[in-house]
């Protein structure tokens, strides 16, 4: 049986470790044993696929996908970019799910007790499938910063959660997109769970005046890089 090429390993210079004590919740939730390296098989190079048909057209617009009696409060933004692999090849037709706090820094999640208002017109979740060129586009409002209990006076920088599948179970990625120039980033234990400054920078979107639409919304561009295949097909 000939399989398409296997995926390059997770790059542990770019990826955060399990244990990062500054982020207190990692202390009891990080494996202490080394990961066991295994050869990829069909089980790892395959993965779920979700068609665009299964996702309503409004899902990518968070300013309308839960509107009850108006638009959500906040700074309207466009977040767009290309999903590609490490070889620079676009990843088309792959599901992206996002979720975020509202403009006040409050999630609709029932566990979020931050003393900031919910917005009746904002649910804070959306999804889309990348197009043939690997591109995606969301419309939303800029999420607010919010406090958390990690340490005294801890605040999360503005961020949007992203979940991606890519072509296989091995390419699965859950991450967060940050905004340029946010003073909370250098003191955020989650952001700094990634140690390499270049890798950190890959989590931060660029403001784009070209994507910005006049009289309507600010534009941000954020490209996402998933694990890529090694060059040559392998005999399994």
């Amino acid at each position: 049986m000939t399989l398409n090429a296997f995926y390059r390993p997770r790059d542990w210079e770019s990826q955060p470790p399990y244990l990062h004590p500054d982020y207190a919740s990692t202390v009891l939730r990080s494996p202490k044993q080394d990961l066991v390296k295994i050869d990829q098989t069909l089980s790892e190079v395959t993965g779920p696929h979700f068609s665009a048909d299964a996702i309503g057209p409004l899902h990518a617009d968070l300013t309308t996908n839960a509107a009850v009696n108006g638009e959500p409060i906040g700074e309207r933004i466009i977040v767009t970019g290309t999903v590609m692999d490490e070889n620079g090849k676009p990843v088309p037709d792959t599901l992206i799910e996002i979720w975020q706090a509202n403009a006040c820094g409050r999630y609709i999640h029932e566990v979020d007790q931050h003393d900031a208002p919910l917005d009746p017109n904002f649910f804070g979740a959306g999804r889309c499938v990348t197009d043939a060129d690997g591109r995606y586009r969301f419309v939303t409002v800029k999420p607010g910063a919010y406090p958390w209990k990690n340490h005294h006076n801890a605040w999360r920088p503005n961020h949007i959660h992203f979940s991606l599948f890519g072509p296989s179970f091995a390419t699965r990625l859950v991450t967060q997109m940050y905004f340029p120039g946010d003073p909370l980033q250098p003191i955020d234990p989650i952001f700094n769970g990634v140690r390499d400054p270049e890798a950190q920078a890959r989590m931060v979107a660029d403001f784009s005046i070209d994507i910005t639409e006049p009289e309507w919304a600010l534009g941000y561009v954020w490209d996402i890089v998933l694990r890529g295949r090694d060059a040559t097909p392998m005999e399994s």
Binding site: R10, M84, E97, H109, G124, L173, V174
Partner: peptide
């Protein structure tokens, strides 16, 4: 070759989006 986008935690508030 572009570097991998780092992973970040799913956090405590994913349920309303993912489940």
């Amino acid at each position: 070759m572009p570097g991998q986008t780092p992973s970040q935690t799913v956090g405590p508030f994913f349920a309303y989006a993912l489940t």
